[in-house]
């Protein structure tokens, strides 16, 4: 379970997140949608402290921290118990596919090399990348990079995986191979917070849809209700303009 309370973040004078609260139950998938520039990425990046929010609290299972006076050790806990899949994959360019998965395990989790290797190979198989285990990121397609990125995020066995538009940098024909992997994770009840513009995917993968605009959560509902019977006029317009 992860819970964010009253999260606020400003860049200069611009309030990017305005008192956002969100709760994600263990094993559930929450999908965040909304127009460009409304703070979706920032929300994700505040959870693992890639951005430092001014206010708010975060609860991760039995761990709790106050963003206003968060310590280095607490940041470390948050980062080692969450993981992230980036829009541009951000695989370590000097590491092979397998080494990408192993590095957080050996460096952060202090796992033995053999154990990390075993986990890495298992995950590469799961995302259909086993035969590319020794390939460097430079030689992989966008979709392959994303699948390795997802395997890397799963490797650390996190409380939650954060996805920031995992398919929006991909050529259209590569999108589905990545979405399928994420669907699989959802079926195995992996806790996930996903930002995406893929509405059909959002509808099928989510347990809960969150619609954000202007740094606020405007509407939050299960997908059938959200898409079938949106409560606000703003949500209705966003859905209709993004569904075709």
């Amino acid at each position: 379970m992860i819970e964010i309370k009253n999260l606020s973040k400003t860049f200069g004078t611009q309030m990017v997140l305005n008192d956002v609260s969100l709760k994600i139950e263990k094993g559930k998938v929450v999908v965040v949608i909304g127009p460009s520039g409304t703070g979706k990425s920032t929300l994700l990046r505040c959870i693992n402290l890639l951005e430092r929010p001014e206010k708010g609290r975060i609860k991760l299972g039995d761990f709790e921290a106050d963003y206003e006076k968060i310590s280095k050790a607490e940041i470390q806990v948050l980062r080692s118990r969450t993981s992230m899949v980036f829009q541009n994959s951000n695989l370590y360019r000097n590491k092979t596919a397998l080494e990408n998965i192993k590095l957080p395990l050996t460096a952060v989790k202090k796992m033995e090399d053999r154990k990390a290797e075993e986990i890495g190979l298992g995950l590469l198989e799961k995302v259909g990348m086993l035969e590319k285990k020794d390939a460097y990121p430079e030689t992989l397609s966008g979709g392959e990079k994303q699948r390795v990125g997802i395997a890397r995020a799963m490797g650390v066995n996190p409380d939650i995986i954060l996805f920031d538009e995992p398919t929006s940098a991909l050529d259209p024909e590569l999108v589905s191979e990545v979405l399928e992997v994420i669907q699989d994770l959802a079926k195995q009840h992996t806790t996930m917070l996903i930002v995406t513009h893929e509405m059909k995917f959002a509808r099928s993968v989510a347990d809960e849809i969150v619609f954000m605009e202007g740094g606020k959560i405007v509407e939050q509902a299960p997908p059938e209700e959200f898409f079938g019977n949106p409560r606000t006029e703003r949500t209705r317009r966003f859905i209709s303009s993004n569904m075709e």
Binding site: N48, L49, L50, Q76, R79, S80, T82, S83, M84, F86, N90, L91, Y92, L103, P104, A107, V108, R152, V156
Partner: peptide, 8 residues
Amino acid sequence: EACLAFGL
């Protein structure tokens, strides 16, 4: 960011 996000 890929390093920091994983807690290196």
